[in-house]
Amino acid sequence: MRGIIPFVAGAAIALSAGWAGFPYAIYKSRPQPVDFSHRVHAEKAGAKCEDCHAFRNDGTFAGIPSLDKCTGCHAAAMGTTAAEKNFIDQYVTPQREPQWAAYARQPENVFFSHIAHVKLGQVKCETCHGDQGSTDKLPRYQEDRISGYSRDIWGTAGRPGMTMDNCVDCHRKQKLEREHSCLECHK
């Protein structure tokens, strides 16, 4: 009996340490280059999603905007926040592109088409990206140390995941006979 208590206690400590420590062991994380706030831009600048996240004429999605979309407004500081000053000093003035990390980035062999979903399918940004378009703070970007994949494709903080199962689930729910072949979504 005396042997069991230390064993159970030891197992509990080892398990909880593993449980808590595992994410740090498997994921490495880094902050985004700029303290960007979607909410500030929606409220103070009245910017719409497509002002920054536009489609090109050939139907491809431009994704995260490049610096030239920002410089029009941020040539000089409009507010007094440290975040804006940092952004201007480090990126706008030296004309340096911020190295954004895309939380939703899929593995290299996945083909995803925004225009098919947003324009033909009328799916809302929020359905797939959750509240990311209206947050005030950018969470740290986490990537799997082994595969290099973003943790977010598995779904985090109440946001939907975007794994192969998730894609297929939605397609099936909408009675879309979509999965004719693997190359439909792979490349």
Binding site: D58, G59, F111, S113
Partner: peptide, 10 residues
Amino acid sequence: HAAKQRAAAA
């Protein structure tokens, strides 16, 4: 894929 995206844009 690229052709499908061009079509979707139209």
